[in-house]
Design a protein around this nucleic acid. Structure first.
Lengths: 348, 348
DNA sequence: CTGAAAGCGCTTACAG
DNA sequence: CTGAAAGCGCTTACAG
């Protein structure tokens, strides 16, 4: 490991001068700068980021904790967050929770303390009490459908409004038996709560079928979950003429089952998803979906987090009493759009 | 920020004792341990990982530099690497190269010096000369189809053999005009070199059509690239009865175009992909593909990298002369399998 | 414009 | 079983 001192020694200057050169400090004689630069090149010196981070009291790293990358929505969102954060000179450390409460709790409690400056979490199973008992003061921003009472910034599109828009689209096409695919059962509060509510409000308002026989639960939100739930729904005799799915993966799984059963999309059953993942645009019947503005979500999440980071090492010892972020927590609602495609409109 | 000293002070012990408790060192009196633990809980102390890393001379972080997460193959591979590395007590920092040479060069040159212990890179455009001029001694493991002369461990399935297996499958089904979709043109050596070669060898050996009119180039490896290339191929009058695609994304794009043109898969055109991404299992015609053993790839890559990491801080100053890894670089070939599905066999 | 010294928060020989 | 001190590789007031 070649360090600053080695460079300083070789160039015949002090460590500070090398540091000045490395960090582009202006007041260095051209001759000195050249000599230092040469020593750096000859030794192949690279500044040690860990040392820099310790000294600075910040790392420029933020964690993004998502359920999993296997869901393209999260992969696409992660790419947006990483790209936007990079533009703000931050590195993103990706963590997986697998949608498990214990993992989610671990992250908000502060594993990674000192390594990350702040955290963006997209929770699935996390509960209010977990946030209350947090015991870490690193800035935290929450993402996605789940809502909490704890005082943290929360970035999410209006899920109820989006679900209503999706349902309305199906109603306007004349569908009357619209199923909802992807409700969750289990020990915790419904993660799919808001989208289910939007569906229920809209079908009820239209006087269309809103019975529980049209609600299919799933264990998770994968294609396999969607395929199974669709099969169960068809077997139950519920005879839907449309399905609104929790997300695109569930919708893609549902369409596969419909195809296997010889049912045509959209003639027999129209399908709407949620997320606008790339796959949906290449299905045999391209998928109508709700497109959350991912780029805006990423931008708002990163901006919200950075706004709550201390600018650097605590300015003065006294400032540690009441450091920063007296700003009240914000509820930010990026936009979304309904994208009608072949799974509801048919092929042009 | 509450540090070790604060805990020590509150518990009335030295920093070392706190450190002993935090790190589960055995020889601590139960009473002392209890007192320290209580101070930790009361103060909400979390050890600062950056300080620990600096002290240890290692961070337990390895970087995984991939082209992009938008390609599910890389997202799925990343999940495997992250999971396996976690089991070996390593954290993975994901970096994107976007398949750009300048980005790939940046990573092998050692941005992230001191922050990561080693690097796994899946290169697209990187050249031999870039590796030769590397100027960083952090352990590096290479992944994927591109092959290099530089002395680094390289993990990849046998791409030529896999491409031959895919092509043979189509030949055995009686196809004679098998196109290859996804050759790359451009300023650098073919990234798709080996798969193209496998296709060429196999069709030639079978005496089937091997003309350049059956080779369609693409700019990248996305669904859109596949859709466009398929359209171009059909418009050119090449009239293939099968296509072997560089990867599943290209194949999915190709199938979409075939559907739009009213061509049936596999009756009119059989399709084989490469990667075995999840999407392929839910297409209208499920996708026949080459399944690289992703888990094995992830395991081998991480193991190869960890085998070359110094175990901790340099044992003695002298050991820095010839540190470790005298092991010659290895070429590791995880397995693969051909998975026949509806896109070549039809629906049962 | 450049240097000497202190310190970021840990861990680890070295003593006792 | 526990403590005092040094040091990981940087940067930053403080001097000069």
């Amino acid at each position: 490991m070649v360090g600053l001192k080695d460079v300083a020694e070789r160039a015949g200057v002090s460590a500070k001068t090398v540091s000045n050169v490395v960090n582009g400090y202006r007041h260095v004689t051209p001759a000195t700068r050249r000599r230092v630069q040469q020593a750096i090149d000859e030794l192949g010196y690279r500044p040690n980021l860990t040392a820099r981070h310790l000294r600075a009291g910040r790392t420029g790293i933020i964690a993004l904790a998502l359920p999993e990358l296997g869901n393209p929505y999260f992969a696409e969102l992660a790419e947006e967050v990483i790209a936007y954060a990079a533009g703000r000179d931050y590195t993103v450390l990706l963590d997986h929770t697998h949608g498990r409460r214990d993992q989610e709790v671990l992250f908000i409690r502060g594993v990674r303390a000192g390594l990350i400056d702040g955290l963006i979490l997209s929770p699935i199973e996390l509960e209010n009490e977990d946030l209350a008992a947090r015991g870490s003061d690193a800035p935290l921003v929450l993402l996605g459908e789940r809502e909490y009472e704890a005082p943290y910034d929360h970035i999410a599109i209006d899920n109820v409004a989006a679900a209503r828009a999706a349902t309305r689209h199906l109603l306007e096409l004349g569908r009357r038996r619209i199923a909802f695919l992807g409700a969750r059962h289990g020990r915790t509060r419904q993660p799919a709560h808001l989208r289910l509510r939007g569906w229920r409000e809209e079908v009820s308002a239209a006087g269309a079928a809103a019975g529980e026989d049209l609600v299919a639960t799933t264990d998770g939100y994968t294609r396999a979950d969607g395929a199974r739930a669709m099969a169960r729904l068809l077997d139950s005799g519920a005879a839907p003429d449309a399905v609104f799915c929790y997300n695109d993966l569930v919708a893609i799984g549902a369409m596969r089952t419909l195809g296997e059963r010889g049912l045509r999309v959209p003639e027999d059953v129209a399908v709407v998803g949620f997320d606008d993942i790339e796959d949906g645009r290449y299905c045999a019947a391209t998928l109508t979906t709700i497109a959350p503005h991912k780029q805006a979500i990423a931008r708002e999440a990163v901006d919200a987090l950075l706004a709550r980071l201390r600018p650097g090492p605590a300015a003065t010892p006294e400032s540690s009493v009441s450091p920063v972020s007296p700003e009240p927590p914000r509820h930010i609602r990026p936009g979304f759009a309904l994208i009608p495609r072949e799974s509801t409109l048919g092929r042009p």
